[in-house]
Computed example of a mutant assay.
Amino acid sequence: MNAIQVWSDLLCPFAHVAIHRLRVAREQLGVDVVLDHHTFALELFNGPHPRPGTDSEAVGLGQLEPAAGFRLWSQPDWAYPSTVLLAAEAVHAAKEQGAKESEELDHALRKAFWFESRSIAHRQVILDVATETGIDAIALAAALDDGRARSIMMADHAVAVTDAIQGSPQFVLPDGSSVHNPGISVRWEGPFAAGYPIAANTDPGWAERLLKQAS
């Protein structure tokens, strides 16, 4: 099975849009390509996730791709996930159960946050999402509790801080070529988290081309 490496942060709205578009194009093309998720942990670069910045990006990207499923955070502020390292670790740990299982957990966690306002920082929420996705939550809990995937996640960070990865999202193909945040241009009106992003589609065919190249 061919794979596209996906380097991203779970709370990155640009990654949410790009992954949605890849999954839709994959279904339309009927190609056998799995998305192999790797962690680009924005919080290890910038500190805790800022809700104002995430909210404003969600508004901008939601207008660009409504089908991806965006909602503003609707739960109490204290429940907002300022960190998603444990959730990212769970996506790595799920690879023990299979590449497709890991991909589906990543997708379900993004949906849980962006569409359902669930605090995916919390261990029990992560395990609940795993159960709903059909993943063995008992095995996943054991992996989280002994930390076996933590070093793998941090090895990703060691790559993320180099020039090899530009940011979230970045897609790396089997031939070694890669592309960062394809198909979208964006500029900020005002400062980050106080202003708002103005985004535009620039290349509607990128996902289909990427999948064909990978397969």
Rank of each mutant, 00 (worst) to 15 (best):
A158V: 06
G69N: 09
G147M: 13
V186L: 08
S119E: 11
L127P: 04
R23S: 13
E43I: 07
W206T: 15
S82A: 00
A214R: 12
G47A: 02
G183S: 10
G134V: 15
E96Q: 15
V6A: 06
D9A: 07
S56H: 03
L11T: 01
A142N: 04
C12K: 01
L42N: 15
G69C: 10
A68H: 05
R26T: 06
M153R: 14
T83F: 02
V84R: 03
A94H: 05
G62L: 12
R51S: 01
W7S: 11
R23I: 03
V6R: 04
I135K: 09
L109T: 06
H107T: 11
A108S: 15
R209H: 05
H157V: 10
L105N: 08
S102F: 08
P52H: 00
L140T: 01
I138G: 07
P191T: 15
A137T: 13
A99R: 09
F14A: 03
S74G: 13
L211H: 12
F192S: 07
H157C: 06
A143T: 03
A149P: 12
L44T: 10
A207V: 07
A3G: 08
N181T: 14
G98S: 12
A200H: 10
E103I: 03
V159D: 13
K111A: 13
S82R: 13
A112N: 02
W114F: 12
S215P: 03
K100H: 11
E43H: 12
V91R: 08
A214G: 05
V159E: 12
A121M: 01
A94R: 02
